[in-house]
């Protein structure tokens, strides 16, 4: 059987590890923790590393006219170095949780946890009515499409999505423009989760610069998992333990 993110066997292996929150989910104010899950483990060593490949932490709080989303992300490399990203986004109250302005910082740490010199970088940016603006050492400005969002925003947007297809330009990590994405509902199914059977709805994301992603959402709940062929994010309250905001 081929490994495809939408294939029941593939999805089942991922979702069986996921435990939905025991308390009602408040889409306005939450903290979600996801474990980074490299799906392609070809040997025992790689499989062992699955457990510590990194994390994505999201913390949302409402603002008067939108929301603030804080992000902590870590991607552990095979050499046990880690790429860290810390971001703060101001989101619009719209279907795509469009990022209006943001600050992003990244750095590497070595296997011993020490920061690697010359690897810390900061960027900020904003989406105005007609432009995408990025600021690092200089300022870059380019026209924006009508519908734009980023991957982190999709975690916020999915719990509110209805059954209509969305089309947008993806600002991957708020820096890499991948235009022409679409997010489409694929239906509902019941899977065995770590806490027992769960009814999930799923969505597929297709577009340039990405292998197809499938997004899995609990009824009235948050995104439980999102994955492509190679990598995914699984809801896991223990992910990123000890990370401070």
């Amino acid at each position: 059987m081929a490994d495809e993110p939408l294939w029941p066997e593939f999805a089942a292996a991922a979702l069986a590890q996921v435990r939905p929150p025991a308390t009602p989910f408040d889409p306005q104010r939450y903290e979600l923790r996801y474990r980074l899950w490299p799906t392609k483990a070809r040997n025992a060593q790689q499989a062992a590393r699955r457990a510590s490949a990194g994390y994505l932490l999201l913390r949302r709080e409402p603002l008067a006219d939108g929301a603030r989303l804080q992000v902590r992300q870590a991607a552990v490399q095979f050499s046990r170095e880690t790429c860290h990203v810390a971001a703060s986004l101001e989101l619009a109250n719209d279907a795509l949780a469009t990022p209006r302005r943001w600050e992003v910082e990244s750095w590497m740490t070595a296997a011993d946890g020490r920061e690697t010199p010359l690897t810390r970088a900061s960027e900020s940016g904003e989406l105005t009515a007609d432009a995408w603006i990025r600021r690092a050492a200089g300022e870059r400005r380019q026209p924006r499409a009508a519908q734009v969002t980023c991957g982190w925003s999709l975690f916020d947007a999915l719990p509110r999505l209805t059954a209509a297809e969305l089309r947008f330009d993806l600002l991957d990590e708020l820096a890499l423009l991948k235009p022409g994405h679409r997010l489409s509902p694929r239906g509902a199914a019941t899977f065995k989760l770590a806490s027992g059977p769960g009814a999930l709805t799923w969505w597929e994301q297709l577009g340039p610069g990405l292998l197809p992603y499938s997004w899995w959402r609990a009824a009235e709940g948050p995104v439980l998992a999102a994955f492509s062929l190679a990598r995914g994010f699984l809801l896991d309250p223990r992910a990123g333990e000890g990370v401070t905001w």
């Binding site: 490299p38 790689q46 050499s79 170095e81 190679a230």
Partner: peptide, 22 residues
């Protein structure tokens, strides 16, 4: 700065971030 091998989807963003920072 960073030694990436294995999965490109996991490593390449770190590589480009390191390069930009450097």
């Amino acid at each position: 700065l960073q030694e990436g091998t294995g999965l490109g989807e996991q490593c390449d963003p770190a590589t480009s971030r390191c390069a930009a920072a450097f």
